[in-house]
């Protein structure tokens, strides 16, 4: 019961923080709101009984990505250029309303259909031991494949930032 109450509080806060991240005029506020949302997401993982994922979420998203975002924002000095209040066109508002209607319909249809898959109810499902065991045994190939994606990220960065001397 307490889990349910905590979940709904977190979920509402999560939607509010992300909404603020989208509509905030100042990019620094947007980034900070996103950091708050990352924290709340990690709390959702805690509620689901996945402490390892929660810690990873905080370390990687808040510790690394958010800081990187802030650095980039400060480097480009976006503050001045985009401080004007955002104007909403009727078409934008219409698309927001449409999205909300679709989400409500989807929620209405999904009542009672979605249930937790079997695996989630196993004790220790999200523990570090279990994650490591699954990652290096059943998910060995996807794990290795992910390293290739990181490698390609480096290649891509080289493509755009490499200095050159004209031939």
């Amino acid at each position: 019961m307490i889990n349910h109450v905590l979940f709904y509080i977190t979920a509402v806060l999560l939607v509010l923080t992300y909404t603020y991240a989208v509509i905030a005029g100042n990019p620094v506020y947007s980034a900070l709101a996103m950091g708050g949302a990352f924290f709340l997401t990690s709390f959702l993982f805690v509620l689901l009984g996945a402490p390892f994922l929660a810690v990873v979420q905080v370390i990687i998203y808040v510790g690394a990505m958010l800081v990187m975002f802030l650095f980039i924002i400060m480097m480009f000095d976006l503050n001045r250029s985009s401080s004007a209040p955002v104007k909403y066109k009727p078409s934008t508002i219409f698309s927001y309303v449409l999205t909300m209607i679709i989400l409500l319909v989807a929620f209405y249809m999904a009542r009672g259909v979605v249930k937790m898959p079997e695996g989630f109810t196993v004790v220790g499902f999200g523990s570090a031991e279990n994650v490591g065991f699954n990652l290096l045994r059943y998910y060995l190939l996807p794990f290795e494949l992910a390293s290739f994606i990181l490698l390609v990220g480096v290649f891509g960065a080289i493509t755009f930032i490499k200095k050159r001397d004209r031939v």
Partner: peptide, 20 residues
Amino acid sequence: IVIVLGLELMSFSIYPLVGF
């Protein structure tokens, strides 16, 4: 999962090639 990772590996390599 492998389909998503394969698709991403393919796409991430193509993006910089488009802007080559």
